[in-house]
Nucleic acid binder design. Structure first.
Length: 378
DNA sequence: CCCTCGATCAC
DNA sequence: CCTCATATCGAGGG
């Protein structure tokens, strides 16, 4: 019997790490210019409406002390900081380059690897550490040292029996943190934490749970699953229940290709003038199309999105019978979608976006065409 | 099963 | 005054 249990344990028990690069964009800027290190650093997305319009992407911890966090308007960040703060525009290419080098280091230490966004990755290290959390801790320290030595950046690492716990653990101590939660600690670790720590619980869901008397993950664990399903739907209800008791069997797997490519941009001024909107949309089409070419993809679906003056978000889309890769088709479709949309809407638009999806590898698309011509001939 | 669209989350 | 990009879910309709 003991034998059997041990078998099960070696087959199933996992050791998962979540590595999170600390205040990534701002830390990249500090690395490039170390004189920034003792100042508040705020990396911004400028929207171009006015001098300081736009939002904060990432701020270093000095800036955060003053209440400057991701997503707040730039002008507000300036009001909070005043003097010696440094405001910088995003340099996405640079961050991608740094990220790529670090991800290669992380991948080399994992049995299975999954990058999540530009600054996060899950590592399944079960085999590497032979199921030992003690060894996992040593490996994590080694990884932190290596990233520091080779790329001059700090990161925070969470270790747990699954992705869910590892992710929350990584958030506990940062920057430059290391938090380990073993199986037997999962319940006591999770239960006092607010539900908002769970992936999938944002502003709206937190509010909804609050009205149900659910504040902590422990509260959620005690709540009836059937009720959760009634309130949040089947998929989410079951997910929330399992998450609340630290259960998660999602595997760590390399992410496949992206399934949509989109660009959105803020207009100089609010408008519902088709010409103005199409002009901006065409720029976005160019950018989206460049990505498509780069990835050698054709697309079957085209979508537009408009953020209206009241910040409500509207979208329209169209799916073709056959995939295409032509920029002109994209632009024409986008124009038609906006034209139709404007007829159905009263409000002025503040931001507009373009999206393509339903990809077909260009090679496959060409093959289809060749086949079709072949058939027609016979 | 596919399409469309809004909502939500989180980067 | 309030960025950007991607994924996922559910509802509604076919």
């Amino acid at each position: 019997m003991t034998f059997f249990i041990r078998e099960v344990a070696t087959l199933q028990a996992r050791v998962i790490m979540l590595v999170d690069l600390d205040y990534f964009f701002a830390q990249c800027e500090e690395r490039r210019n170390p004189s920034l290190k003792d100042k508040p650093v705020v990396v911004c997305v400028y929207s171009g409406r006015s001098e300081d319009s736009g939002a904060v992407s990432t701020a270093n911890y000095i800036a955060r002390k003053y209440g400057v966090t991701s997503g707040i308007p730039i002008f507000l960040a300036k009001k909070k900081l005043k003097k010696d703060a440094v405001f910088l525009p995003m340099d996405h290419e640079f961050y991608e380059e740094v990220s790529g080098k670090i991800m290669r280091i992380l991948r080399s230490h994992a049995d299975f690897f999954e990058q999540v966004g530009i600054d996060e990755a899950y590592l399944d290290v079960s085999q590497k550490v032979k199921g030992s959390f003690e060894e996992a801790k040593e490996l994590a320290q080694k990884i932190k040292e290596e990233v520091k030595a080779q790329q001059k950046l700090t990161c925070s690492i969470g270790i747990g029996p699954n992705k869910l716990v590892a992710k929350i653990a990584a958030d506990i101590q940062k920057p430059d943190g290391l938090t380990i939660v073993k199986h037997e600690q999962v319940e006591s670790f999770l239960s006092p934490l607010p539900v908002s720590r769970l992936i999938g619980v944002g502003r709206k869901t937190k509010k909804k749970m609050q009205t149900l008397g659910i504040r902590t993950i422990g509260d959620l664990a005690k709540y009836d699953v059937q009720r959760l399903i009634e309130v949040f739907g089947k998929k989410l209800g079951i997910y929330f229940h399992n998450a609340s008791i630290g259960v998660d069997d999602e595997s760590v797997q390399e992410r496949g290709e992206v399934e949509s490519i989109s660009r959105i941009s803020t207009l100089k001024g609010d408008t519902r003038d088709l010409k103005v909107i199409v002009e901006k949309a065409n720029q976005l089409c160019d950018e989206v199309h460049a990505k498509l070419v780069q990835r050698e993809l054709g697309f079957k679906s085209v979508g537009i999105v408009a953020v209206m003056v009241d910040m409500s978000v509207r979208s329209r889309s169209r799916t073709f019978e056959n995939p295409t890769n032509e920029l002109e088709v994209l632009k024409k479709t986008v124009k038609e979608l906006f034209e139709k949309f404007l007829n159905e809407s009263e409000l002025e638009a503040r931001r507009v976006g373009v999206k393509v999806s339903n990809f077909v590898k260009e090679q496959e698309r060409q093959k289809q065409i060749t086949n079709f011509i072949g058939l027609a001939k016979n």
